[in-house]
Write a protein that binds this DNA or RNA. Structure first.
Lengths: 196, 196
DNA sequence: TGTTTAACATACTGATTGGTATATTATGTA
DNA sequence: TACATAATATACCAATCAGTATGTTAAACA
């Protein structure tokens, strides 16, 4: 019973994602959000808790909707193909013309005031999960003879993620899709092969 | 004539650099700055103009004091050595234990509110200068036969800067110096040699 | 020793921040 | 039709934001 909600929370969350992704966590005000969503402040707080809760929910949505390709990419037959799919897919996310450029996980907060430290650390932790997934994939590849045994999977996962982060910053600065794919081209030139 | 200033503007600027570098442009408040500097608001405004002016002056100081190695690095005898010095030197800046980790040019603003767009664009422009300097160095190297003629200097400059940006984000997230030097190790594995 | 000048300290401005109290309106149920 | 419930709209909260007006203090010059 009770009055019906006059807005779609899921649609509102998608809008929040766009705003947060463009402006970052601290650069986005509640007024920015309610204005873009077309709802009032009490409606936002009733539906999503507070700003921090809302941001975490947009992070979940972002990973579900835009970063889901990574899981499939890691299941490519070879390690090299997995990494290439990872980086190419990420470039396409970073420069998706349907939304603001860059990555929510990077644009969200690289540096921020003390008040937002919790969000900054959340983002760092989420990035670490992705890197660990890649490292595990490379470790598996090394067991399969698909990745040189004298190379360190952690080193290469760190390198690949670093290239990704760099491209995310560039994308937020307006880099084109083609430009970033050329970065991937160069980044992959060093990929190690098993000698036999 | 008139009363003497009771603080050292240059010392105050160094402190501002520390604060801005840790918290970013928007994450830093005037109160954060005056508190750290040990001066009052009117003193700050009298000495440095407004927040935006002060930030630009800290940027100048940062480049002068921490990024000056880049100029010398580019003068290394070979392109490969120049790039290696560039990346290694940058890692040392990013993880200098005397200051907060990360790069002011990246921590300053990746994403921000509309009110700080001018600062964001200033940072993008300054980054572009560095990339162009590297590209020019590689172009010179190509003329000297020190860099393959079938490789694009712009592509490689873009790649190197991307790796640098990625490491800057990592550093701000707490990455160690050793960790980042291992990223450089991997990043340089693909450096192209002239076939003869 | 005045007078001028500039940096000092205190207190303030209007605007905006994240978040909420209150009253109204619309709904399902009894 | 009356009641309970929940979402709305309006207006508000204290705190903080960047920036400043004002009065006081300390120095250099005449």
């Amino acid at each position: 019973m009770g009055r019906h909600r006059e807005f779609d929370p899921d649609e509102a969350l998608h809008i929040a994602l766009q705003v947060f992704r463009r402006r970052g966590y601290e650069g986005t005000s509640i007024s920015d959000l309610t204005e873009a969503m077309g709802i009032t402040r009490p409606s936002l707080y009733a539906a999503f808790g507070n700003k921090e809760d809302l941001f975490r929910r947009t992070l979940d949505l972002y990973e579900r909707q835009h970063l889901c390709f990574a899981h499939e990419a890691l299941q490519a037959p070879t390690a090299q193909e997995a990494v290439e799919r990872l980086l190419r897919g990420y470039v396409d996310v970073l420069t998706d013309p349907m939304g603001p450029p860059g990555c929510l996980g990077v644009n969200g907060a690289v540096a921020c005031s003390e008040a937002s430290e919790a969000i900054r650390e959340e983002l760092i932790a989420r990035r670490m999960v992705n890197e660990n997934n890649l490292r595990d994939r490379l470790e598996k590849a090394r067991c399969n003879g698909d990745f040189p045994s004298n190379e360190d999977p952690a080193d290469w996962a760190r390198y690949v993620v670093s290239v990704g982060l760099g491209m995310a910053v560039r994308a937020a600065s307006g880099a084109s899709r083609e430009e970033l794919h050329r970065v991937v081209d160069v980044a992959l030139r060093s990929w190690p092969t098993v000698s036999r």
